[in-house]
Computed example of a mutant assay.
Amino acid sequence: MHRLALAAGAALMLMGQAAPSDPEMRLWRLDCGTLEVSDFGPFSDTRDYDGQPRDIVDSCYLVKHGADYLLWDTGLPASLIGKPATEWVFTYRMTTTLRDQLRTIGVKPDQIRYVGISHYHDDHTGQARDFPGATLLIGAQDWEAIRTVRPQSERDRFQPWIGGGAKVEPVDKDRDVFGDGSVTILAMPGHTPGHRALLVKLPRMGNVLLSGDQFHAQESYDKGLVPAFNFDRTDTLASHDRFKGIVRSLKATVIIQHEAADVKKLPAFPKSAE
């Protein structure tokens, strides 16, 4: 019995030594610009915002998973720094770049393993081509639209991948990015045909759900509002239900990426959530 106990103890010790440790998980919020909206009306097709001006933030995120990094959305283009631009109801402003912010925390562009894009709109894709060494993760339907029907200005932002010099992995449904359930790209079509959200599981903060443009403001979330410019209203409402269901089930912290109060749920850069 004594020998058996020793053998069992040795086996447990070996198993403990061989067991892999959980990868370090961290989440940074990044400044990707601001949008001054002269009339927020188009953000509700039931006329909730008609004539109301509003300022919203444009946020991006960096996820650390062990030695790997995922950059989620790439914001407005760096060319706007010091040169605000007005288009339709929007005035776009930028004060810093993603590369400069990453440099602050010691992360080089070639360390970014993945660039994940919630959807193809300009304020989420502006600096994508600054990371040509990364594998692009994007909704399959959005990728098809970029390659075939979207404007040339949008195609230019994805030139490293369209040209074949960089790897792209279109995401057809959900995608477990690292294979351990810690970071999941979620199918949330409607805003665009291939719109996605991102679920990040942190060891201390718990589940964090980044919205993409599933919602643009807290009222949009509370009332289930649909922007007039969304691709498909029915899909949007179905994705609303799925998003809120995941929040309930996982008790997730919601980050509406254009809502300043939500972005502030995460530590101010350069600190990270863990």
Rank of each mutant, 00 (worst) to 15 (best):
R129T: 12
V57L: 04
F243M: 01
G194F: 15
H216D: 05
T91S: 05
E24L: 13
G224K: 08
L136R: 01
G165A: 01
D174A: 11
E259T: 00
D142I: 12
P203M: 05
D232H: 10
R150Q: 13
R93K: 13
A7W: 03
L102F: 05
A19I: 04
F158H: 12
A85R: 15
M13F: 11
G106M: 04
Q257Y: 00
S211E: 07
S79N: 06
W28I: 14
A128D: 07
L76H: 02
L80S: 04
S182C: 03
V177R: 12
Q111K: 15
K173F: 11
T34L: 09
M188G: 00
H65Q: 11
V177C: 03
V168C: 04
H258E: 03
K64A: 15
A166Y: 11
L237F: 06
L102R: 09
A261Y: 01
K223G: 00
S44N: 10
K108S: 10
K271W: 13
S59I: 02
A260S: 06
G179R: 12
Q52D: 02
D31C: 08
Q52H: 08
L202G: 05
F215Q: 01
A134H: 08
V37C: 12
G41A: 01
S211Y: 04
G224F: 11
A260L: 06
K244S: 04
M25C: 08
A268I: 11
P203K: 09
T97D: 01
D39I: 04
L202K: 00
I185V: 10
L35N: 10
P270K: 10
G9N: 08
I146L: 13
K271C: 12
D39H: 02
G165E: 01
Q127A: 06
I112R: 11
R99K: 12
H119V: 09
D130I: 01
G165W: 02
P267N: 04
D68R: 15
A228M: 00
G139T: 07
L199T: 05
R93E: 12
F269V: 03
L237H: 01
D110F: 00
P170V: 05
M25Y: 11
Y221D: 03
R47N: 12
P203L: 09
G163P: 14
I56L: 07
I56Q: 03
P132W: 10
A7S: 05
L210H: 03
G245S: 08
V171N: 04
L202N: 10
L27Y: 06
G41E: 01
R26C: 09
E154M: 12
D176K: 02
L14H: 09
T74P: 00
P203Q: 06
L80F: 14
D123R: 01
E36N: 07
A187E: 14
H191V: 13
A5K: 09
G66D: 11
I105N: 04
L6Y: 07
D172E: 07
D241L: 01
Y92K: 07
H2G: 15
T97V: 03
I112A: 09
R155V: 10
D122I: 13
T34E: 14
R93T: 15
P23T: 12
A140N: 08
